[in-house]
């Protein structure tokens, strides 16, 4: 039974590390901001959950397990909020830049 728990904890940690690395490659590889955000989403949901579940299986102390669960819940509640705020700010900035460019080109066409 002990060996089984040990192996499954190692398995969870391995999957978590692999998902994390995939997210890291995604953030370097994807072409623009919004697609990179999806890559970060992978590392913040399933990868974090897998690594923390691996740690929960690894150690038997109850209080430490409770703390790990608190960290997991906090990450899951925080990541969509931060992601939404970031995407919203980026979208507003894009819109503003587009308007700016339009104004500039209008000014240019009226002066030329």
């Amino acid at each position: 039974m002990d060996a089984f728990i040990h192996i499954s904890s190692s398995l969870f940690l391995l999957i978590g590390s692999f998902l994390c690395l995939s997210g890291g490659i995604g953030i370097l590889r994807f072409p623009d901001f919004y697609t990179r955000m999806h890559a970060v989403g992978v590392t913040e949901t399933l990868a974090t959950a897998m690594i923390l579940i691996g740690l929960i299986l690894y150690n038997p102390d109850f209080l430490v397990d409770v703390k790990l669960v608190i960290i997991l819940l906090m990450t899951l509640f925080i990541s969509p909020t931060a992601g939404h705020a970031l995407a919203n700010a980026a979208m507003l900035n894009d819109k503003m830049q587009k308007d700016d460019n339009k104004q500039n080109s209008e000014v240019k066409s009226s002066t030329s």
Partner: peptide, 17 residues
């Protein structure tokens, strides 16, 4: 700028792990 903020956010969550 937003790419940088996104990457810093990811760096922070990985620091927690």
């Amino acid at each position: 700028l937003y790419d940088r903020v996104l990457a810093v956010n990811m760096f922070g969550t990985k620091t927690v792990l």
